[in-house]
Amino acid sequence: MTDLRDLYQELILDHSKKPCNFRVLEKTSHTAEGYNPLCGDRYTVYLNIEGGVISDISFQGAGCAISKASASMMTSSVKGKTIDEANMLFEEFHRMICGNPGSRVNEAALGKLVVFSGVCEFPIRVKCASLAWHTMKAGMEKSKEPVSTE
C-alpha cells in the first residue's frame, strides 16, 4: 500500500511552507489565474516573456500543500526556458502524475520534479499538482506572438 510519505515528501512540504518566487512580478508580460472549484485553490501566475523565453516567473495565491509546492517548483524549473521547452516539461510532468504507479518517468528531463511521482497514486490530487502548470500554460497562450519560434 502506498504510504502518505510518497505524496507528502520532505521537499514538497518545504516548498509548500516556503515557496520560491511567491510574489508579484514587477515586470510582467502575461498573467493568468487558475482556480480549482473543488477545493477552492486559487493562484495567479505572473510571466515575463521576452523573445519566446520565460525570463522571469512568479506566483501568488492560496491552496493545498501539493498545489503550492507544485507552483513553487514549477517556477524554479521553467525560469529561463523557452515557451516550447516549458510546454514539453509540462507534458512530461503531466504524464508522470497521471501515469500508472511504478511506470517509468523521464527523470533526466524532470529533475527535482520527480518528487511529485507519488501523485499518480492519489488520482484526486492530480488537479492540485497540475493547477499552476495549467495556469502558466494559459498565460503563455495569451501571447500568440512570443509563442512563435519561427
Partner: peptide, 23 residues
C-alpha cells in the same frame, strides 16, 4: 493551524475517515 483542509482530507482518507474539505 497552517494545514490546508484538502491535505487534511487526504491524510484522514488513508486512515479510513471520510470528511469534506473545501468551501
Amino acid at each position: 493551524d497552517g494545514l490546508h483542509p484538502h491535505d487534511i482530507g487526504t491524510v484522514l482518507d488513508r486512515e479510513g475517515v471520510a470528511i469534506r474539505a473545501g468551501h
